[in-house]
């Protein structure tokens, strides 16, 4: 039984334009699943659907999100929030904007523990210190008292990672957690997330553009195109023999890890046309059914 099971999730813009097209994704306990696809494919919207933070113009119009055996959409808004707060955490994309500028760092790590999960302040602070140590932050007691603007981007992302793991969630959604960082810092943060994931055994839904990252960190992956899952496979199998022409093209299009600045082969026109035709056929079927 998967910890997170997204089944036929459909998200539309103002009830019309489809943004996600019957997306199904399963994440088992402890599994690390990559979510790849070009910009605008809908990767972030999948995470937001689960977390309940979709933009106002977008809404879930079909499908189910089962978390730990409970259908989230059947819960009251309050209960839904509490389940997410207790069992899921987000590592956001941009550490520079994801911390509240007018609050010290410490309370931003402990607030979920204290306010939502009912920990004592003391226990929560001890826990935060422990986590800051785990993410290799020197002098954590001082950092707890600092304001976000006093810390570097890499430090802030470490803090956000510590904060995400603090409540021992069963699932962490990481939405391109390194793209906003310096290249040198990216690798450290990536290694840190992998290390933390292994230590805590947390399931991870890892949104990324970078197939190199996928090959290093993830076990399974879903390839998204235009809000549609075109391939759902094991990472090992994907690199050996991608099952969909679009995935294959994506694999060729990605610069090699050994040669990151090497020439980029664009996804061929014909492949794009074919996958666009698949999406159009899907939409026709949906309309026919409706």
């Amino acid at each position: 039984m998967s910890f997170l099971s997204i089944q036929d999730l459909t998200v539309r813009l103002r009830g019309k334009t489809p943004i996600l097209r019957r997306v199904s994704i399963d994440v088992a306990a402890g599994e690390v699943r990559a979510l790849v696809g070009e910009s605008g494919a809908g990767k972030s919207m999948i995470g937001k659907s689960v977390l309940g933070t979709l933009p106002q113009a977008l809404g879930i119009t079909g499908g189910r999100i089962i978390l730990d055996g409970e259908d989230l959409e059947q819960l009251s808004p309050r209960a839904r929030r509490q389940r997410i707060g207790a069992k899921v955490a987000l590592i956001p994309q941009d550490p520079l904007t994801a911390l509240n500028p007018s609050r010290r760092v410490g309370p931003q790590i402990t607030n979920r523990l204290v306010d939502i999960l009912g920990w004592s302040r003391k226990a929560a602070e001890a826990r935060a210190l422990e986590l800051l140590n785990e993410v290799h932050i020197p002098d954590p007691a001082r950092v707890m008292r600092a304001y976000p603007h006093e810390l570097s981007g890499g430090m802030r992302q470490r803090i956000l990672i510590a904060s995400a793991f603090a409540a021992e969630p069963k699932l962490i959604i990481a939405d391109e957690p390194t793209t906003a960082l310096d290249v040198t810092v990216q690798k450290q943060i990536l290694r840190l997330i992998a290390e933390m994931q292994q230590r805590h055994g947390t399931a991870l839904l890892f949104v990324t553009h970078d197939l190199g990252v996928v090959s290093k960190v993830c076990q399974t992956m879903s390839v998204l195109y235009s809000g549609m899952v075109v391939e759902d496979t094991k990472v090992r199998d994907f690199f050996a023999s991608p099952g969909h022409p679009y995935s294959a093209a994506l694999l060729v299009a990605t610069p090699k890890y050994t040669d990151p600045d090497g020439s980029l082969t664009p996804v061929p026109e014909a492949v794009i046309r074919a996958v666009e035709e698949e999406v159009a056929a899907f939409d026709r079927r949906q309309e026919g059914a409706a």
């Binding site: 929030r81 911390l99 607030n111």
Partner: peptide, 14 residues
């Protein structure tokens, strides 16, 4: 709309 508000929302606040 800022990120830290969204992040707080995922923590379970009303």
């Amino acid at each position: 709309h800022l990120d830290y508000v969204t992040l707080a929302r995922t923590k379970g606040y009303s």
